[in-house]
Design a protein around this nucleic acid. Structure first.
Length: 138
DNA sequence: GTAATGACCAATA
DNA sequence: CTATTGGCCATTA
């Protein structure tokens, strides 16, 4: 068994954890890819440096394959914008339905709509780390 | 086997 | 404010 085969189940669990967190985002609020990723500990077989560099992209990859019950539309990039791709306007419509207002540059005010993250109890119950060292989002 | 691409982010210029 | 760049992962062609 080589290393790549060993890595697949780990990545699968990583995706599942991402979806679990995204399901906790309430309607009318948004979270960035990096914020979600920052709640998940460094997986085995990867250095913390590399993890930090790529975890946000992995969250994006997980969103491209998420189950139907995941509110994927509430995950946007760290600049408060919807990442450009097929279906971006549909994502914006869904968020506007939830009451989120975009500014003239198609941006969301993260100070107003940003999700602070799950409670410490929820994190602990799911074996995740407390996000004490928030990125400079506010 | 190689090469291109991706729903990202932080630090610079 | 915008534009560029390094990060060096995983998937797909």
């Amino acid at each position: 068994m080589n290393e790549l085969e060993l890595l697949a189940p780990i990545r699968s669990a990583f995706y599942t954890t991402i979806w679990t967190i995204v399901r906790e985002i309430p309607a009318g609020q948004v979270a960035s890819y990096g914020l979600i990723a920052g709640m998940i500990p460094v997986p085995p077989c990867i250095s913390s440096g590399n993890y930090k560099a790529y975890r946000a992209r992995w969250v994006g990859n997980a969103m491209s394959a998420c189950p139907p019950d995941v509110p994927w539309q509430r995950v946007i990039n760290a600049q408060g914008k919807i990442s450009l791709r097929q279906g971006a306007d549909r994502q914006r419509k869904l968020l506007e339905t939830e009451g989120i207002v975009f500014d003239l540059r198609q941006r969301v005010d993260l100070k107003r709509y940003g999700w602070p993250g799950p409670s410490a109890e929820w994190l602990a119950a799911n074996g995740l780390v407390d996000q004490t060292n928030q990125p400079s989002l506010f």
